[in-house]
């Protein structure tokens, strides 16, 4: 008797065949290693990064001969010495670090009420509006946004034109350090809100209600209940904003008018302007080290926050 087609459909046969292939390629006795197999893409990705870092480390120990524009065969610490002693690099390193700290604090201050309102609002319309406003900047690249500020804040920009209407002469609002900080805060805000929102969602509303019913006013509830419980979000958002700000290139380049370089700009100059890839590589390594130390410090002092996926010390 001919078997009914529905008894063993084609899809099942294909699945059986695929399972057969999978068993041949990855036999059952390897099953205990399957979780490690899943890790393979991540290991490959990290491995590539490590390989890149090894190459950069190798380049950082070679000096440029400006008579042949070839790099030395021998290793030396000349680039390390230059990076630590030349005033230019100390200035840009200090500027980058201070900016990263200021931007992190200001961004968290602005991001928190936004995230709180987005999570707690009873109005679906307002929540949707806040979500759209949050994601819209992600569709516009960092460079475009920075150029947008040039149009708005430039000498003939909208702000100066508005000031002109009330008799105020045009003033320089861009191409300075505050403009760079402003641009960075604006760029980082969505990242910070995205990192804070899950932490705030995890705080049961009942806790705030309970604090209120026990007599705590809004401020006390906020300080003693919401803020401590939001700490994982602050840490996660803080680490992301700190590292992105520290390593930023475009905003200082566009809004800084050429005189507010960060470390990334100095690295670019060495790689592409003076052709000294050795020194550029050394600066890049030092930037990676500085960022890693800062993140390590935050983790050591406060735990990993939301970045620990629920295993923070909060």
């Amino acid at each position: 008797m001919r078997a009914a087609r529905t008894a063993y459909p084609l899809k099942w046969r294909i699945m059986d065949a695929l399972e057969g292939v999978a068993t041949a390629v990855w036999p059952a006795r390897f099953r205990h290693a399957t979780p490690y197999l899943m890790l393979l893409p991540a290991v490959l990705l990290v491995g590539l990064l490590v390989l890149g870092l090894i190459q950069i480390a190798d380049a950082s120990l070679r000096t440029l001969d400006t008579t042949t524009f070839q790099f030395s065969d021998d290793y030396s610490i000349a680039n390390f010495r230059r990076a630590l002693t030349e005033p230019l690099f100390l200035v840009v390193a200090q500027r980058s670090l201070v900016a990263a700290l200021i931007v992190t604090v200001v961004t968290l201050v602005f991001a928190f009420p936004y995230a709180y309102l987005m999570v707690r609002t009873r109005s679906p319309g307002l929540r949707k509006f806040l979500l759209v406003a949050l994601f819209l900047p992600f569709f516009i690249g960092q460079v475009v946004r920075a150029y947008g500020w040039l149009i708005i804040l430039g000498n003939q920009g909208m702000v100066n034109e508005a000031l002109g209407l009330v008799g105020v002469a045009p003033m320089r609002l861009i191409y300075n350090y505050p403009a760079v900080l402003f641009g960075l805060v604006q760029y980082m805000l969505p990242f910070a809100v995205l990192m804070l929102a899950p932490a705030l969602t995890a705080i049961p509303e009942e806790l705030e209600a309970a604090a209120g019913s026990l007599g705590a006013n809004w401020v006390r509830t906020f300080i003693h209940v919401v803020l401590p419980l939001a700490r994982p979000g602050f840490i996660g958002a803080g680490v992301v904003v700190l590292t992105l700000s520290l390593t930023d290139f475009a905003v200082p380049a566009i809004l800084g008018g050429g005189s507010q370089d960060f470390i990334a700009n100095a690295i670019y100059d060495q790689f592409f302007r003076t052709s000294d890839q050795g020194l550029g590589a050394m600066l890049a390594l030092m930037l990676v080290a500085l960022g890693s130390i800062l993140v390590g410090l935050v983790f050591a002092l406060f735990g990993a926050g939301t970045l620990a996926m629920g295993r923070s010390r909060a």
């Binding site: 440029l64 400006t66 008579t67 030349e86 005033p87 230019l88 200035v91 840009v92 500027r95 050429g258 005189s259 507010q260 370089d261 100095a266 100059d269 302007r273 003076t274 052709s275 000294d276």
Partner: peptide
């Protein structure tokens, strides 16, 4: 220019970024 450009650029940058 080629042999000294890197040093000149760094000097100029150091002054302007300072």
């Amino acid at each position: 220019q080629v042999e000294n450009e890197s040093e000149w650029f760094s000097k100029f940058k150091a002054i302007m970024q300072g």
